[in-house]
Every structure is written in structure tokens, then in C-alpha cells.
């Protein structure tokens, strides 16, 4: 490197020549600082290397999943009775959960964003818990709550059975997705200047009318994005669903459960097919989310 080091004038330190040759420690050209002068830093090389290596591994894993099956195998697995049942139940439960989650998280997020009330920080903390909470433990806690212990007997008198039922799937999915949805919607509401609502109030509209006429329409792209991500979380929920709903064949079998059951039987084709389906849903959800979160609808 020493051999190319020479005195550079201001003029010679610009243009193509510059980027190739400049090794000056004190070069002030922007492109030089970014591209050339730090070329030989071991730290830069290490961070870039790590980022490439592991992204590549991830890509390889996803790619393998997509390529390992022949189209005919994929198609036959897709058309199997079990897979059709699982897909139908997944879409049904996830849709129902998404609706419930949205119905509950919109008011929750709005209250957290606009009002101050006693216990607000407690609510925020509890909602933050599941972020770091193992899904299996959440499933166990739900099983205890809706099982024989507390709410179970009460609900049973009303004819409602949550554990080991299809309803259990929805309940588990709800509690998995609810805190995330509140977060996304909360930040959507935070982005809307409350003065819009104040202006609407000043024209004689009440709080709810203002919410319906001004806040909701302004939040719609954020709400749509959060509904999509909620749906994806619900359809992919596994641990809590397995514990609360039981994951029994052709009864409470949703896509992740199909994957799990078939892997344990050694039935790779079915497992991989449900994996591909789940991945596609996640991929579409992320694409839509990126497109609409904070954007216009």
C-alpha cells in the first residue's frame, strides 16, 4: 500500500482516479471516507462478512424448503385431505382471531395513546410482557386459566369449552397476536396529531363521532397493515395453540400443527408443504406490511 502513497493535491483527490488510489489518512472527500480510506479496516470487513454469511445461510435454508420437493409431490401433499382440512381450519381460526384482535386492540391502543388514566403504565407493561414471554408458557397459563382452575367451570355452565377445542385455537392465537397489534396500532394513533380530532370536536362532533369520522379513516393504512401482520402471526402461532387446543389430528390441526405432527411421523412431504405455505403467508404479510405501514391506502 505504501507504494501508491503520494502527496495528493485537492484536484487530484477528486474523480475516478482518486477513489482507486487515495490512501491519505486526512482525505476529506466524502466518497473517499466512505469507500476508500476505510477499505482495509478489519472491523469493517468482519461486520460485512458476518452479515453476508448468515443472511446467505438464511436464504439457503428458505431456498431448500422451496426446492426440495418436486412440484408433483407438493401438489399431491396440498390436495391431501389432511392438508385441506388444516388449511381451512387455519384460515378460519386466523380470520376470526384477527377480527377479535383488531376489535380489541383498536380501543386499547387508542386509550393508551390519547388518555391518561390510573394504571396506564401497568397496562402497558403487561401488554409488553408477551414480547419476551415464551409462547409455550403463555399456552400453559391459558390452559390453567380456561381449564379446570378458574374460568373453566364458569364457562362450561354457559356451554363454552376452550381447552382442546377449536375455540381454544382462536383464544391462543388471540393472546399471541393481541400485544403486537396494540403496539402497531398505538404507533399509528401516535402519528396522528390530536389537533385533527380537536378541530372536529370544535364543529360539534362528539368523541366517538370524531373517532369514526376522522381518526379511523386517517389510521386506515396503519390498521390494514396491522391486520395483515396479525393474521400472519395468528396463522403461524404454534406453542400456545398446541398446549391450549391440543393439536390433535384432523380436529385442532392447524398448519403449524400439521408440520409438527408430520415431522414426528417422518412424513416429510406433508411437513415441508405446510412449511412452504406458512412461509408464503409470512412473506406476503411482510410485503404488505412494509407497503402500508405508515403509507397511504
Amino acid at each position: 500500500m505504501q507504494s501508491v502513497r503520494k502527496i495528493w493535491t485537492k484536484e487530484s483527490c477528486t474523480g475516478k482516479n482518486h477513489e482507486k488510489n487515495c490512501v491519505r489518512d486526512s482525505c476529506i472527500s466524502n466518497s473517499c471516507i466512505r469507500k476508500t480510506c476505510v477499505r482495509n479496516s478489519w472491523f469493517r470487513n468482519a461486520t460485512i462478512g458476518i452479515s453476508f454469511f448468515f443472511t446467505f445461510l438464511l436464504f439457503l435454508a428458505v431456498g431448500t424448503l422451496l426446492l426440495v420437493l418436486k412440484p408433483s409431490e407438493l401438489l399431491s401433499a396440498l390436495m391431501s385431505e389432511e392438508m385441506l382440512y388444516s388449511m381451512e381450519l387455519s384460515v378460519l381460526t386466523a380470520s376470526l382471531s384477527t377480527l377479535t384482535v383488531m376489535g380489541c386492540s383498536i380501543p386499547t391502543a387508542y386509550a393508551l395513546s390519547r388518555f391518561s388514566f390510573p394504571g396506564k403504565s401497568l397496562v402497558k407493561t403487561i401488554l409488553g410482557l408477551p414480547m419476551a414471554f415464551p409462547e409455550l408458557v403463555l399456552g400453559l397459563a391459558l390452559l390453567l386459566l380456561f381449564g379446570q382452575g378458574f374460568l373453566g367451570p364458569f364457562l362450561e355452565t354457559l356451554g363454552i369449552k376452550v381447552p382442546f377445542s377449536k375455540l381454544g385455537i382462536v383464544v391462543a392465537q388471540f393472546f399471541i397476536a393481541f400485544p403486537y397489534a396494540v403496539r402497531v396500532i398505538y404507533s399509528t394513533f401516535e402519528d396522528i396529531n390530536p389537533r385533527y380530532e380537536q378541530v372536529s370536536r370544535s364543529f360539534g362532533y362528539g368523541e366517538f363521532e370524531t373517532f369514526r369520522n376522522v381518526t379511523l379513516p386517517m389510521a386506515r393504512s396503519g390498521l390494514f397493515a396491522s391486520a395483515v401482520i396479525t393474521f400472519a402471526r395468528c396463522i403461524g402461532a404454534f406453542g400456545a395453540v398446541l398446549i391450549l387446543a391440543g393439536g390433535s389430528y384432523m380436529h385442532t390441526e392447524v398448519l403449524p400443527v400439521t408440520l409438527y405432527l408430520n415431522i414426528s411421523y417422518g412424513n416429510l412431504e406433508m411437513a415441508i408443504t405446510s412449511g412452504v405455505l406458512l412461509m408464503l403467508i409470512a412473506f406476503l404479510a411482510i410485503l404488505t406490511f412494509e407497503r402500508f405501514e405508515g403509507g397511504s391506502l
Binding site: N193, R195, Y196, Q198, V199, S200, R201, S202, F203, G204, Y205, G206, V214, P217, M218, R220
Partner: peptide
């Protein structure tokens, strides 16, 4: 009185026109 009962209007520096 709540703001919707006062018959007072306001114009802010950043207009606050409803974008939708």
C-alpha cells in the same frame, strides 16, 4: 362545557385539514 358544545372554531399554523 366539552369543546363540541362551545361553538368556537380554531385555525392552527399547520392547517389540520383532514387528508382523507
Amino acid at each position: 362545557l366539552p369543546p363540541d358544545k362551545r361553538q368556537i372554531s380554531i385555525v392552527y399554523q399547520d392547517h389540520m385539514l383532514f387528508p382523507h
